[in-house]
């Protein structure tokens, strides 16, 4: 039983990070119809910014997280302005190619400056907590609390503020949004900034129990796409639930089936769920 609970906890940790990353991806897709393959690279840049803010500048973990959020949000908006905005009337394939271009560019730049070494990010939260038979590293608790806290904050922002409402409005009816006077550029920049913050915070939370290296975003972005397809493209609850499903499937599958195959499980699950429900789990409303 304890072993099972331990896996549930691992699944929750993984799932909350996957959810955060997928949330940014699904927001951008649902509102601007851009499949942002560069999102994984933004996540990677977030981890590097946090790492160097802590190691080189000697600032604490939380300041590093804020720095990562700010830098990546800026970078994300810059991608929108310089790349996706000029392509807004181009065929969708151009967005895809451009996004892959940004991904390769960011990786190359990071590798040029900081090399391809694997780095371990320090964290001030190294205690191991014990609850009954459960062993819980404090960083994992922080990941779960941080991720869900941020999701809650995003939910409030989207539901309670006027700016948040414009983002939802744009997703539900683009032309309707224009006709009430919502500025498409503002919403686009806002959405990219939010996606950037989610990726950077996700990276800063997850990096201490993982490694920091230029290709760290690859598998994650693949899984994030699996998650948003599974949850329904553009769906916010879909991204969160989808993230948790993949997180749990990996943790439990990795433990009970085979650890070598844990990355395959996400994709196998995608095949199974899409054959039962081809439109994804939550497809209401947004495309």
């Amino acid at each position: 039983m304890d072993l099972f609970l331990q896996q549930v906890l691992n699944g929750l940790t993984l799932g909350s990070i996957y959810g955060l990353v997928a949330l940014g991806l699904t927001l951008v897709y649902g509102i601007l119809h851009v499949p942002n393959f560069a999102h994984g690279a933004l996540y990677m840049v977030g981890a590097y910014v946090a790492y160097f803010t802590m190691v080189d500048l000697g600032l604490n973990y939380w300041l590093a997280m804020i720095a990562a959020g700010a830098v990546v949000a800026f970078l994300s908006v810059l991608c929108e302005r310089l790349v996706f905005h000029p392509l807004r009337n181009a065929p969708p394939i151009h967005d895809k190619i451009a996004a892959i271009g940004i991904l390769l560019f960011l990786e190359a730049v990071v590798q040029m400056y900081w090399g391809a070494d694997f780095r371990r990010m320090p964290t001030p939260y190294t205690e191991i907590l014990h609850f009954g038979g459960l062993t819980i590293p404090a960083q994992r608790l922080l990941i779960i609390a941080g991720a869900f806290g941020l999701m809650g904050a995003l939910h409030l922002y989207l539901k309670k503020t006027m700016t948040g409402a414009t983002i939802i409005a744009m997703a539900q009816n683009r032309e309707g949004a224009f006709l009430v006077g919502i500025d498409a550029n503002r919403v686009a920049m806002m959405t990219f900034a939010i996606a950037g913050v989610l990726a950077a915070v996700g990276a800063t939370l997850f990096a201490p129990i993982n490694l920091v290296y230029p290709a760290m975003g690859h598998l994650l972005i693949m899984k994030a796409f699996v998650i948003i397809i599974l949850g329904g493209m553009g769906s916010i609850p879909g991204a969160i639930v989808g993230g948790l499903i993949i997180g749990f499937a990996e943790a439990l599958g990795g433990f009970y089936i085979s650890n070598e195959y844990k990355d395959v499980i996400a994709f196998a699950l995608l095949v199974v769920i899409l054959s039962v429900k081809p439109t994804g789990l939550f497809t209401k409303g947004v495309r």
């Binding site: 939802i168 539900q172 309707g176 006709l179």
Partner: peptide, 13 residues
């Protein structure tokens, strides 16, 4: 201000 054909409401709000 235009009230468009097909209404273009925000259906889930």
């Amino acid at each position: 201000v235009q009230c468009p054909e097909g209404r273009k409401l925000f259906p889930e709000m």
